[in-house]
Amino acid sequence: MTDHPSDDTPVQDPWARLRAATPARIGLGRNGAGLPTGALNTFRADAARARDAVHAPLDFDALAAGLPDLPVLRMASAAPDRPTYLRRPDLGRRLSDADRAALAPADPAPDLVFVVCDGLSSAAIATHAAPFLKIVTEQLSDLTLGPVVLVREGRVAIGDEIGGALGAGMVAVLIGERPGLTVADSMGLYLTYGPRTGRQDSERNCLSNIHTSGGQSYETAAAKLAWLVREARARGLTGTRLKEEAPALAAPDPAKGIGAPD
């Protein structure tokens, strides 16, 4: 028997008003101390979606096919597989030896290079990277854009090595953020001026929560990135010192230590 039916008729459901106020899983009902089967299965489905987003390999062919008309480079980090990637963040921040050797300065030197990493949500990149890049590259058409570099098992800092080797003025890393149960396909973006190995997280500016389930829209994120890129070029820096001038644009918060796979 159900002690707290969660399917009361709307007139009787005292939770209706409260549910409207929060995405939290309130008013689920219970059987003894147990979750009703329906609520349990909903949770399981959301958890499965999040786990799949972490572990499902990104289809890089499909991604490359949908990208705007820029040269594409395909690379891999030093993490050979997903279990290693999850255990060894240091390897996800470095290119594989073969790819490092193959990378040469671009001619002409690009103002900006986009690096696209699977990160912790392949679903985020599969869904959002191509449409976002289409919008943002149109807004930045006056700049010299380098190739779009697609990286398997990458973390944010791998953009430093790639951007440095290509001789890019700036690098923008698109990356799948750690999935939650509510949103499993959230994309983050990290802009770094003067990319080179050893840049600190405090030297980047971050746009997070780019997705289509109530997050930042592609248009909003593209406009913010365009602003950041122009400000960074004018001042010759990114990071907390740029953030101070633009309080609406957050730099990554190292104290929280969660979210994107730095």
Binding site: A24, R25, A39, F43, D46, A47, R178, G180, T182, I258
Partner: peptide
């Protein structure tokens, strides 16, 4: 609520 922290995104 429901083991799901909707702000910190963990369970």
């Amino acid at each position: 609520p429901g083991a799901d922290d909707v702000m910190l995104n963990y369970q």
